[in-house]
Amino acid sequence: MSAVDVLLAGVGPGGALSSGLTGELENEGWAAFTLTGVSADVPGLRLIPEDELTVEGGKTRTFSGRVVVTDCAAVPREPRSIRFTYRTWLWSGSVEVIPDSWRLPGTSGEPVPVAWQRGVAVEMCNRAVSSDWS
């Protein structure tokens, strides 16, 4: 997996803090695999994958899903991984990836690196309470 992006959307239907999640999956092997799940053990945040996706050997595909912030204050500050589960014709397995840090403005104006999930929560929660985003 080469990259994960969160497309910030803000408050969705029913007041849920929800955004799009996309990423690139690269199959460096010769056998196709099917992405069967995307999850993260992150308090205050939930990942909702879209349908299963098959990536042929030697190919790259884009996956998508949703990120829902359920409790702004509960999202941890230390980096957490995203788990991708997959199956092939021969076996099933999983791999965990920690996305790159986000950079948010610090008090001195310089960008400060923060864990990806904390950056998502800060941006989404700030948008939810700001009149600029309504």
Rank of each mutant, 00 (worst) to 15 (best):
G93H: 15
G44A: 04
S108G: 07
D41L: 07
V97W: 13
S101C: 02
L47N: 06
W89M: 11
V4C: 09
T85R: 14
S18F: 01
G37L: 08
R80D: 02
C72T: 03
A128M: 04
V75W: 00
S39Y: 06
G109A: 03
G12H: 01
E50Y: 14
S18N: 10
D71W: 00
T62A: 08
V11L: 02
V67F: 02
T54E: 15
G14Y: 00
P43L: 06
G57F: 02
S18H: 00
V55F: 03
P43H: 01
A40G: 03
R77K: 07
E52N: 15
S19D: 10
T34Y: 06
V4F: 13
A115N: 06
S81Q: 10
D100N: 15
P99C: 09
V68A: 12
L53K: 13
N126A: 12
V114Q: 05
S81L: 02
W133P: 00
G106E: 04
F63V: 03
V97R: 15
P111S: 08
E56C: 00
T107A: 15
W102C: 10
M1C: 11
G29Q: 06
E24P: 04
D132R: 14
T34H: 06
V67M: 02
L45Q: 01
A31M: 12
L53D: 14
G58T: 00
